[in-house]
């Protein structure tokens, strides 16, 4: 099993390295210009030269995304629990929640800026909205999925509504909550980039726009590397948190890759 797990980590890493190697070779052999496609080496050098500035921008984006995710989580859980307890409201709002997920960020962002200015407020609202929906929806589904036998048992011994929520429905919905949170974690960084792109004076989205306008393709790729790394960190932080929280299930093999098993 340890062998299999090691392979699960090693294989993608090797694949990535091979890909980067081929890229570097192609750039060298065909003498491709940096402003068309920078080589991995060019990108690395640019990132190193810019590292001080880049670090600040990464940190700004990281903070924004983290606060957005945390607030989205708290509000999402609170709203879902509330809707679950009041069935009439759930019936009224659950379909609207699904619909609202289809509102494009690129349309919502500028509107929020008109209403709330160019500070951190409109960006945070955007991120909270992005994280709120998958969290609220998944936990809302999870709260209704608790095992009927356990529900019946609690009914027979006369547990209160609050006890039913606390002892049964909430713990039973935790794995749903985490799958929603995984989706939110993948969205949150790219949404932060979009928000910063639309208007900001710091963050990777801002840096990206700067480099793009300056035809600095190596810089553009450098920001892509930072964005991907940041998203990766967010995603696996959630996977790790899930593992630490849900310990009562016998662990299935290779679940660290999340969706694939």
């Amino acid at each position: 099993m340890g062998n299999k797990r090691l392979r699960g980590i090693l294989l993608p890493v090797v694949t990535l390295l091979v890909f980067v190697g081929i890229w570097q070779a192609v750039c060298a052999i065909f003498e491709i210009q940096t402003y068309t496609l920078p080589s991995p080496w060019n990108i690395a050098v640019t990132m190193f030269e810019d590292s001080a500035m880049l670090g600040e921008h990464v940190l700004a984006t990281f903070k924004l995304a983290l606060i957005g995710l945390a607030l989205g989580l708290v509000i999402g859980v609170a709203v879902a629990v509330f809707l679950h307890i009041v069935p009439l409201l759930r019936e009224a709002f659950a379909p609207l929640l699904v619909l609202s997920q289809n509102v494009p960020l690129i349309a919502l962002g500028p509107l929020l800026m008109i209403w709330f200015g160019f500070g951190w407020m409109p960006k945070l609202i955007l991120l909270v909205l992005v994280c709120f929906f998958p969290v609220a929806l998944s936990i809302l589904v999870g709260l209704g999925q608790a095992e009927p036998q356990l529900r019946e048992y609690l009914g027979m011994i006369g547990a209160s509504r609050w006890e039913r929520l606390k002892r049964l429905e909430f713990p039973a919905s935790l794995s749903y909550l985490f799958s929603g949170l995984r989706i939110a974690a993948t969205y949150v960084v790219s949404s932060a980039i979009v928000a910063e792109w639309l208007g900001a004076n710091k963050g990777i989205g801002f840096y990206l726009k700067l480099k793009f306008n300056g035809f600095d393709q190596a810089g553009v790729f450098g920001s892509i590397v930072c964005i991907v790394t940041l998203s990766f960190l967010f995603y696996y932080a959630v996977v790790l948190a899930e593992r630490l929280t849900i310990r009562w299930r016998p662990r299935s093999q290779g679940d660290w890759k999340g969706a694939s098993s």
């Binding site: 036998q149 356990l150 019946e152 048992y153 027979m156 002892r167 049964l168 713990p171 935790l174 849900i246 009562w248 299930r249």
Partner: peptide, 9 residues
């Protein structure tokens, strides 16, 4: 109940 109905968590 018929099944043990223990809470897994």
């Amino acid at each position: 109940p018929q099944q043990a109905a223990l809470f897994p968590w």
